[in-house]
């Protein structure tokens, strides 16, 4: 009985971590700047490849993962300063532009790096509960998801950068009038979002097949979580991940992955119908 219970909790934590890590970067970029970043998967892929190549060149895994996240963040800042900043008032164009970037990057990777890359293997370590055995690394992923959420909270609620970022988000003209260098805030926010996408890739790198299009496997979950969560990453993403995680885990356990995926997508349709601004929009309206 305990084993069954533990298994359910473990699987929920696993799905929750995947949703949070996949969505965090996308949620920040969407919530902060209203940009729907179609190249989100490619930032994830960047984190993955940098991590794997780092490990294969002798770096310890955590160091390589940090490099993966930082590289993605750096590329995010550069991209914001060269392309994205032109598109702040043109949301549809920003979708097209970031989608174009995504296509260029995946095909460019295919041409330069080949169609596959040898994996690095998950750090060893497993434990047994009853008949079930679990990979310890999955707990690391869950812990990372929790840390990322706490980190986002501290960054946006407890630092001066967070204050400036929220001010810019709420009223860019007023923020500028009060002396906030909004372009820098935008670049930094985009960089943070990209770095979180890179971190997601870095964390999942040891557990997956490496191909240039692998970012796509995170995209559905990332967008679904952001749609359900709404534009406020702090209020929306965590409840969204909890709700979707519970739905998906229970349906997966009940009748396999197809039902799990169908259930998750139906939940999204219902949420869009009932709460068009997502969970965070609903919470914010109730608070008012």
């Amino acid at each position: 009985m305990f084993a069954e219970l533990f298994s359910i909790v473990f699987q929920f934590a696993d799905v929750f971590a995947f949703l949070i890590l996949a969505a965090a970067g996308l949620a920040i970029i969407f919530g902060m700047m209203g940009i729907i970043n179609m190249a989100h998967g490619e930032f994830i892929m960047c984190g993955i490849y940098v991590t794997v190549i780092g490990v294969q060149n002798g770096l310890p895994l955590p160091v390589a993962q940090a490099c993966g996240a930082l590289t993605a963040g750096l590329i995010g800042v550069i991209l914001e300063r060269t392309i994205i900043y032109r598109l702040y008032d043109r949301p549809l164009d920003s979708i097209l532009a970031t989608w174009g970037i995504s296509l260029i990057v995946t095909q460019g990777m295919l041409v330069t790096m080949g169609s596959s890359w040898p994996g690095i293997g998950t750090p060893t370590g497993s434990f047994a509960v009853g008949v079930y055995t679990f990979s310890t690394y999955r707990l690391v992923l869950f812990a990372a998801a929790v840390v990322v959420m706490i980190g986002i909270y501290i960054l946006f609620m407890r630092t001066s950068f967070g204050t400036l970022a929220r001010a810019t988000m709420q009223n860019p003209q007023m923020a500028r009038a009060l002396g906030v260098r909004t372009p820098r805030v935008y670049a930094a926010s985009f960089g943070v979002g990209a770095a979180l996408a890179g971190l997601c890739g870095a964390l999942y790198a040891p557990t997956m097949t490496l191909i240039p299009t692998m970012g796509i496997t995170f995209i559905v979950e990332a967008f679904v979580t952001v749609v359900v969560g709404g534009s406020n990453v702090l209020l929306g993403t965590v409840p969204a991940a909890v709700v979707l995680g519970v739905i998906r885990t229970s349906l997966n356990a009940w009748h396999g992955q197809i039902v799990g995926q169908i259930g998750m997508l139906i939940a999204v349709i219902l949420v869009i119908r009932v709460l068009p601004e997502g969970v965070s929009g609903w919470l914010a309206r109730r608070a008012r």
């Binding site: 699987q11 796509i216 496997t217 396999g256 992955q257 799990g260």
Partner: peptide, 19 residues
């Protein structure tokens, strides 16, 4: 168990197998 194409996470599947 039939898996939708593009799914990459198999935690639950692995446990269903162990069960």
């Amino acid at each position: 168990e039939f898996i939708p194409l593009g799914v990459s996470q198999f935690g639950q599947t692995i446990q269903n197998i162990q069960k």
